[in-house]
Computed example of a mutant assay.
Amino acid sequence: MSTDNTVEAALGALRQAISGLENAVDMRFEAERENAEVESEVKRVHADRARLAQELDQAEFRANRLEEVNREVSRRLVTAMETIRAVLDR
């Protein structure tokens, strides 16, 4: 093999190696970008979950309070009906 052929072969191998390295770097950057996007989405999901949990707690509190008020109103209605019956029965 002549010196020119050997140099050309070495340059071709070098070009291939550099191209492979560039591709590997590009793939690594893309993987990093995708990881960052996933991490960002996970943070958004956690924030949504926390917000929804807080809203659920508030809704449960309101439902419990409405239940208490409903029982009190029911008790007062029964008392009022008994009072009306007692007055009518006289």
Score class of each variant (00 low, 15 high):
Met1His: 09
Thr3Met: 13
Asp4Val: 09
Thr6His: 07
Val7Cys: 01
Val7Arg: 10
Val7Phe: 08
Glu8Phe: 04
Ala9Gln: 13
Ala9Gly: 07
Ala10Asn: 06
Leu11Met: 11
Arg15Tyr: 02
Arg15Gly: 05
Arg15Lys: 15
Ala17Glu: 13
Ile18Lys: 07
Ile18Leu: 12
Gly20Met: 04
Glu22Leu: 08
Asp26Met: 07
Met27Phe: 10
Phe29His: 15
Glu30Ser: 07
Glu30His: 05
Glu32Trp: 01
Glu32Leu: 03
Glu34His: 02
Glu34Ala: 03
Glu34Thr: 01
Ala36Phe: 00
Glu37Cys: 02
Val38Trp: 03
Val38Ala: 07
Val38Asp: 00
Val38Leu: 13
Glu39Arg: 03
Glu41Met: 01
Val45Ile: 15
Ala47Tyr: 04
Asp48Ala: 06
Asp48Gly: 02
Leu52Thr: 01
Gln54Trp: 04
Glu55Lys: 08
Glu55Ile: 02
Glu55Asn: 06
Leu56Glu: 11
Leu56Trp: 00
Leu56Gly: 01
Asp57Ile: 00
Glu60His: 04
Glu60Gly: 00
Phe61Cys: 05
Phe61Glu: 10
Arg62Tyr: 11
Arg62Met: 06
Ala63Ile: 04
Ala63Cys: 01
Leu66Ile: 02
Val69Met: 07
Asn70Gly: 06
Glu72Asn: 08
Val73Leu: 10
Ser74Val: 05
Arg75Thr: 08
Arg75Gly: 10
Leu77Cys: 05
Leu77Met: 11
Leu77Gln: 11
Met81Pro: 00
Glu82Pro: 00
Arg85Gln: 11
Ala86Lys: 09
Leu88Asn: 02
Asp89Thr: 09
Arg90Phe: 10
